[in-house]
Design a protein around this nucleic acid. Structure first.
Length: 268
DNA sequence: ACCCAGGCCCCAG
DNA sequence: CTGGGGCATGGG
């Protein structure tokens, strides 16, 4: 059942999906197939219309954070950047316009970003799809076609280290092996407070400061989270430190600005 | 062959 | 607590 939704320029589907925050989607013809927690959708954007074909449309409105007022957020970030004469932030806000921070499933986000370390985006995506294809007991039908969802905690707990390694996880296989065993103990201790969430997440082997911030941002929409990876580090060095400037993190929505900056530098 | 990819662990000092 | 070596894998 297809639903048509009016959107404005604060949402750009393709930019959002390709901004490096999610890995479980695929382009087919003129639309994207996106995999969520217990849902899959076929979605495309034409101008200011969004066409969603899904088992549960409301899930996807939340997944894409379409209930957030990005006009307001962007106005705040712009005025903050102007106050600080921050030209790179202003440029990033222009170029990143349309990107939204998604609300992704917690477990899958953890596993995905553990995999992301010292890895590149196409290969992360390949591993996520291979894991779903080979290890998942979870599937869903849409338009008479069956789609494999990301494996459940249970699915991954059953695997040996060797089986995990067989999808090209390399040394990260041991992190995943450990993670699925401590996850049940952790699930009730997060989504409470940003600093505490970081602490809990970082107590897992294989989750450091950057990955923990990605999880807070992309699964919990904790907008104070500001993941610093090699690209953001390059930006801080080249656009600020080496020019004698200081980057001042916005007091609100820093994570959204970070995603705009990341996108801007990567799409040069 | 070499370098890099949305880093992290572990061990010196 | 900080800095640096090592880490699996595949693609350019």
């Amino acid at each position: 059942m297809e639903r048509v939704i009016d959107i404005d320029k604060s949402f750009d589907l393709e930019k959002t999906l390709k901004s490096g925050q999610c890995f479980h989607f695929k382009k087919v013809e003129d639309y994207f197939i996106v995999y969520g927690l217990n849902n899959v959708c076929k979605i495309k954007q034409v101008g200011n219309k969004l066409y969603i074909n899904a088992t549960d449309v409301y899930y996807w409105l939340s997944y894409f954070a379409l209930d957030e007022d990005y006009e307001d957020i962007i106005a705040y970030l712009k005025s903050y950047a102007r106050e600080n004469n921050d030209t790179f932030s202003l440029e990033s806000i222009e170029k990143g316009m349309g990107i939204r921070i998604l609300r992704q499933p917690f477990f899958e986000t953890c596993v995905s970003f553990i995999i992301s370390q010292r890895n590149n985006i196409p290969r992360i995506r390949k591993i996520i799809f291979d894991m779903s294809e080979r290890f998942s007991s979870r599937k869903i039908m849409l338009d008479g076609v069956e789609y494999k969802l990301f494996p459940s905690l249970d699915d991954l707990q059953k695997l040996s280290l060797e089986e995990l390694k067989s999808v090209g996880l390399g040394y990260r296989a041991e992190y995943i092996y450990d993670f699925v065993r401590v996850f049940p103990d952790m699930i009730d201790r997060v989504r409470f407070d940003y600093e505490k969430d970081l602490e809990v997440l970082k107590s897992c082997k294989g989750i450091g400061d950057k990955v923990a911030n990605c999880i807070c941002l992309f699964a919990f929409n904790e907008y104070d989270a500001f993941p610093i990876d090699v690209w953001i580090n390059k930006i801080l060095e080249e656009e600020y430190t080496s020019k004698g400037k200081e980057f001042k993190k916005p007091k609100k929505y820093a994570g959204i600005l970070q995603q705009f900056m990341f996108f801007t530098r990567r799409s040069e």
